[in-house]
């Protein structure tokens, strides 16, 4: 989903602009190092390919068709850094030329659809390309890339104070899941068709990581996307969770103190509360993943 200007609160888009600008700079430099000069036209043309590929309809259900979104396909053909650069270029063209997505929120859209989505979509492939799970990894990559970008966009809207009734949210999540599955299937079918023409076009990652760590990483990505969403939709839920875990005593003073200063402006403090809750949710998820990973690693070493 391309977020237009006017939807996100200044704090949200400014933060994401600040994150995306250096990230894209870094990725562009990495992409240039990975691929020689010759690849600049290649990246541009592949961006045009992704644009054009949206005209090719895939029949998915009675009377419904889907089309390629492309992040995962680009990542397995060009590598993740180059894919992120291409997706950024696509988003820039969509925002400036086709008025699809806003200008000041470009950083948010880039973060959701070019950075997080491409990296999430590449992760399973990076981990399992060398194993018997290769096809499943490509499929999972497609699913993850769409889910990640959609959940992040939804979370940013919620944090910005766009209200979303619970039922509507469930419907949207269901739709995201369906489009994720479509993207997974389309990406896998496309990769197979491309491989049949010339297997060189699909890059294999240099080395595959361990399967367990991979599972933890993917769980982390999923949980982070979901966690941000839940945290931003129901900050009160997180607070009650915090209370149940008995963390209130330690965390409350320094969490509450800044809130008190912002009571002058009702809107601002509500946003801050949500953002803090969201951040807290994120930290929880990370800690959980980190501990699980440690635990599994120790189990294996014994």
């Amino acid at each position: 989903m391309h977020i237009p200007d006017g939807f996100l609160s200044p704090a949200v888009w400014a933060t994401l602009d600040l994150v995306s600008v250096p990230a894209v700079g870094l990725l562009a430099r990495k992409a240039q190092r990975d691929l020689e000069d010759r690849k600049i036209p290649l990246l541009g043309v592949m961006g045009a390919f992704v644009f054009a590929a949206q005209m090719i309809n895939f029949p998915v259900g009675p009377g419904t068709t889907g089309h390629l979104v492309g992040g995962t396909l680009l990542a397995v053909t060009l590598g993740p850094a180059a894919a992120a650069v291409v997706m950024t270029a696509i988003l820039a063209i969509q925002a400036f030329v086709f008025q699809d997505g806003g200008i000041v929120v470009l950083g948010a859209n880039v973060f959701n659809m070019a950075i997080a989505s491409v990296l999430a979509g590449y992760l399973p492939y990076r981990l399992w390309a060398g194993s018997g799970w290769r096809s499943a990894a490509i499929f999972a990559g497609g699913v993850l890339s769409v889910l990640t970008s959609a959940c992040l966009a939804l979370a940013q809207l919620l944090i910005s104070g766009v209200p979303m009734p619970r039922r509507l949210m469930l419907v949207s999540l269901g739709l995201f899941l369906v489009s994720g599955l479509i993207e997974g299937a389309v990406t896998l079918a496309a990769v197979r068709a491309i491989e049949r023409l010339n297997p060189v076009w699909i890059r294999s990652p240099k080395d595959s990581g361990s399967r367990v760590l991979g599972a933890v990483a993917i769980a982390a990505v999923t949980l982070v996307a979901g966690g941000v969403l839940i945290a931003s939709a129901a900050p009160d839920g997180i607070w009650s969770l915090v209370g149940k875990l008995g963390l209130t005593a330690q965390t409350a003073p320094w969490l509450h103190a800044p809130l008190a200063d912002y009571q002058v402006n009702g809107l601002e403090s509500a946003w801050l509360r949500k953002a803090t809750a969201g951040l807290f949710g994120l930290v929880l998820v990370y800690v959980a993943c980190f501990l699980t990973g440690k635990f599994i690693a120790r189990q294996r070493s014994i």
């Binding site: 430099r29 992409a31 541009g44 043309v45 961006g47 644009f51 270029a89 820039a92 063209i93």
Partner: peptide, 14 residues
């Protein structure tokens, strides 16, 4: 610059 060039080529071949 690489990003600008990618956008330029993208638009040309779109």
């Amino acid at each position: 610059r690489p990003l600008i060039l990618v956008v330029q080529f993208l638009y040309r071949y779109l």
